[in-house]
Write a protein that binds this DNA or RNA. Structure first.
Length: 204
DNA sequence: CGGAAGATCCTCT
DNA sequence: GAGGATCTTCCGG
């Protein structure tokens, strides 16, 4: 299968310029295929109330994708997935953790799975209860804990507080199967920065 | 209205 | 690598 290989794809990351995405540039970035967005998010700098880092790992989800929360249409939980491109969709997972997504086309989203910590590192260490840099944000639940993300900041655009997202220069990308799902599990829609030490799990 | 499943993480072996 | 924590959501009856 495709996903059995490490794919060191060409760097198709879209460098858009300096400064945060806002208004039209935010819409243009996210109003694209969720795979393209998930790849271009790699290297982008994300902060929540000034705490965060560069995105190292993402996954793409689609409306016709059995693994997606949008597969059976809108519900109370997934309402934010049908907001504008660049909207934030947060949900509770396994009764304990939060997960962060960015909306692309309606019902499509990029799950933010890992960050390389850069700003507010002491705050993140305190929230996570560890001083180990590589495990501060190495998973979707961990990064939400480190960045102080919960449902109270669901369903709002990324160019509004507490969020800031800035685009990145191109980075080398690897891809593989998505993690932790049982339906449509073979789709190679997980993406990461090649060689990053800040991943939820290595790509094989 | 009950119950199983779930886009996870941590600890222990 | 296995198992437990923990609880919301949604589907089936």
């Amino acid at each position: 299968m495709l996903s059995a290989f490490i794919m060191t794809d060409a760097t198709t990351n879209g460098a858009i310029g300096v400064g945060a995405l806002a208004g039209e540039s935010l819409r243009k970035f996210f109003e694209r295929d969720a795979i393209t967005v998930s790849r271009d998010l790699l290297g982008c700098h994300l902060t929540v109330d000034g705490v965060g880092g560069r995105i190292t790992e993402t996954e793409a989800y689609f409306p016709d994708d059995e693994a997606s929360h949008s597969f059976r249409g809108p519900t109370k939980r997934n309402g934010a997935m049908y907001g504008k491109p660049g909207n934030v969709y947060i949900y509770r997972i396994y009764g304990m953790y939060w997960c962060l997504n960015f909306v692309c086309h309606p019902g499509s989203a990029a799950l933010i799975r890992a960050l390389e910590p850069e700003t507010g590192i002491p705050v993140m260490m305190a929230r996570r209860g560890t001083d180990m840099l590589t495990s501060l944000c190495s998973g979707p639940g961990k990064l939400c804990q480190a960045l102080g993300i919960d449902i109270t900041i669901n369903d709002r655009l990324l160019d509004r507080p507490p969020y800031v997202i800035a685009p990145s220069a191109p980075v080398p990308i690897v891809s593989g199967k998505r993690i932790g799902i049982t339906k449509n599990a073979e789709a190679p829609w997980r993406f990461g920065i090649q060689g990053s030490r800040y991943l939820s799990k290595p790509f094989r």
